[in-house]
């Protein structure tokens, strides 16, 4: 919850759910026993970079989400499987007809010895839009996760829309990371010197890996031109690191997140 006034209840928007389940295929690879989508959310199996990994690309068949829409995406990676999920293009949050807030809920579960790479393209809050996004991740203690979230306030040259995004990650049932960013019109202080200042894009990259238990990384200031962006890599209280990046645009943020990932990444397992 944030200090943002509640939006009108979602009314006549689209409801769509997609579901992905990844499981070992018994031959060293990963199968997708469930790969289901509807409406604007269509997950497709695409070519993977590694033979043991199943790659899924979520294709946005429609511009989504619109105000009033309620989208939900569930993915589960069963023990020992490896899943990578990306999206074909940036997701654009657009205003609906009646000013209702849109919702987008992502639920991820990664089991023992499994790996999930959740690397969607940026989410762009177009002028007048209002989106509440939640991402909840349940990690087994031996699970590995790379998760990226990039938020952009307004399309090029456009006023920002409103975006509230909460990322909750539990590991072994205990809270590992809980962060909510609330940005855009109506959020007190969001463009002030404590939150985003002049930046209009932000990103987070979370890497959780049991490997960090024995190789706790230090803080890394990801040097950058402060006029363009700034970022830091921080070790969390559990075996995970978070890269937090701010930039004037999505490209800057991506560059900083990539730098953070290179600085922190455990050896590919």
């Amino acid at each position: 919850m944030t200090a943002v006034a509640p939006a009108p209840a979602a009314s006549c928007g689209v409801r769509a759910a997609a579901r992905i389940v990844a499981a070992p295929d018994g031959r060293g690879g990963t199968a997708l026993p469930v790969l289901h989508g509807e409406g604007p959310l269509v997950p497709r199996r695409t070519r993977a970079a590694r033979a043991d990994t199943a790659q899924v690309t979520v294709v946005g068949a429609m511009s989504a989400p619109l105000g009033g829409d309620h989208l939900r995406l569930d993915a589960r990676v069963l023990p020992g499987a490896r899943l990578a999920v990306g999206s074909a293009a940036a997701t654009v949050s657009l205003p609906g007809r009646d000013g209702a807030r849109a919702r987008y809920d992502v639920r991820l579960a990664v089991d023992e010895g499994a790996e999930l790479r959740w690397l969607p393209e940026p989410l762009i809050a177009a002028a007048g839009s209002d989106l509440a996004m939640t991402t909840r991740v349940e990690l087994a203690e031996g699970a590995r996760l790379v998760l990226r979230e990039e938020l952009v306030l307004g399309r090029a040259g456009e006023r920002p829309g409103r975006l509230v995004s909460r990322l909750t990650v539990r590991r072994g049932g205990r809270a590992l990371l809980d962060q909510e960013v609330a940005l855009g019109p109506g959020v007190p202080g969001w463009s002030g010197p404590a939150v985003l200042d002049r930046y209009r894009a932000m990103g987070q990259l979370l890497i959780a890996d049991p490997w960090f238990e024995e190789h706790a990384p230090g803080v890394v200031a990801l040097a950058s031109d402060p006029a363009e962006g700034e970022a830091v890599l921080t070790p969390l209280a559990g075996p995970a690191v978070l890269v937090t990046a701010l930039g004037r645009d999505a490209l800057t943020v991506r560059r900083l997140l990539n730098a953070g990932q290179r600085a922190a990444a455990p050896p590919a397992g």
């Binding site: 919850m1 944030t2 200090a3 909460r166 909750t168 809270a175 809980d178 962060q179 909510e180 960013v181 609330a182 010197p193 404590a194 939150v195 985003l196 200042d197 932000m202 803080v219 200031a221 700034e230 970022a231 830091v232 921080t234 937090t244 701010l246």
Partner: peptide, 22 residues
């Protein structure tokens, strides 16, 4: 349900706090 606690974050405060500590 402890998840009902707010989690509002300020990215600049987090980034700047690390720089300041150094």
């Amino acid at each position: 349900d402890l998840d009902a606690l707010p989690a509002a974050s300020a990215p600049l405060l987090e980034i700047a706090a690390e720089a300041h500590a150094a």
